[in-house]
């Protein structure tokens, strides 16, 4: 049942994936958007999903915490395992799943509330803090981990929407971290940001990579090469190739991967 590409070196030994897709198909009505995907995602390795627009990488990402459930015509078959448990079986509590698998979106979407309330919202609804002091602690550490604490510590009461784009996105990351997830999904988190803000987010992803399994969808191959250890290339709903990032970018096995990386398709 190991359909992921063969691993090499010491990484192959500790290979118990955090999340795994097994024969995943996604349909939007009659449109077959994702075709039979098998993919292992590891806790300690940032994984990039790359591919041209409309290739299904975001759709696949949104399957990993069942965000696609809200689209009525969207239909998913196959299994997605989170620590050996299929998240698409009927007994799964989607609310709890999304607390374990957090998400950062393409466009920064802080709540129109204070910075404090933005970060504290997740812990509040899940009852993670018994006292106000615990909540303060969670907010502080989350903002610290997201590298935003120094910039906002004096204005936690001001609105989250008043921050700059890059700060907003880091606030969204802090908000996701505050729930203490195991996996963080990032859907093109830098596509609405300028290069400086992008660099900060990339550095942040690098820093967080040890603590959370991070799966990131990106349009920028340079970004994928910079921040991820594993890369999956999607094309027209299929996963063409999956492997170590260095390998994908230096010696791709598939012609389509090479064509995309060298800019011939996309």
């Amino acid at each position: 049942m190991n359909s992921a590409p063969a691993e090499t070196g010491p990484e192959a030994i500790q290979a118990k994936p955090k999340m795994a897709a097994r024969g995943v198909n996604v349909f939007y009505g009659d449109n077959h958007a994702i075709k039979d995907i098998d993919l292992d995602l590891y806790a300690d390795k940032v994984t990039s999903l790359i591919g041209p627009s409309g290739c299904g990488k975001s759709t696949f990402l949104r399957c990993l915490n069942r965000m696609n459930d809200t689209i009525p015509i969207c239909h998913v078959t196959g299994e997605i395992l989170l620590e050996d448990e299929n998240i698409y079986t009927s007994g799964i509590d989607v609310v709890q799943l999304r607390a374990r698998v957090g998400m950062v979106f393409q466009k920064p979407n802080p709540f129109p509330k204070s910075i404090y309330d933005n970060v504290a919202y997740g812990p509040r609804i899940h009852g993670l803090a018994a006292h106000r002091t615990d909540l303060d602690e969670i907010v502080t550490t989350s903002l610290e981990k997201a590298g935003l604490w120094q910039e906002v510590k004096d204005r936690l009461d001001s609105s989250g929407t008043a921050l700059s784009g890059g700060q907003q996105q880091r606030l969204c990351i802090a908000r996701a971290i505050a729930v203490n997830p195991e996996v963080i999904l990032m859907d093109e988190p830098c596509s609405a940001l300028d290069p400086i803000a992008t660099a900060k987010i990339e550095a942040l992803i690098d820093e967080l990579s040890g603590r959370y399994a991070i799966i990131i969808v990106t349009h920028s191959m340079q970004q994928a090469a910079r921040i991820s250890r594993k890369t999956a290339f999607f094309h027209l709903g299929e996963m063409v190739e999956y492997g170590d990032t260095t390998e994908i970018f230096t010696s791709p096995k598939e012609d389509r991967t090479r064509d995309y990386i060298t800019g011939r398709i996309g």
Binding site: V95, L97, G102, M103, F105, N109, Y121, I125, R175
Partner: peptide
């Protein structure tokens, strides 16, 4: 109300009712 706000709340694990009444 922009869908991004609903997505944000849902992504944090807010239940449908929490999404509606909190945001």
């Amino acid at each position: 109300v922009p869908p991004s706000i609903r997505d944000a709340a849902r992504g944090l694990g807010a239940s449908p009712m929490q999404v509606v009444f909190h945001h």
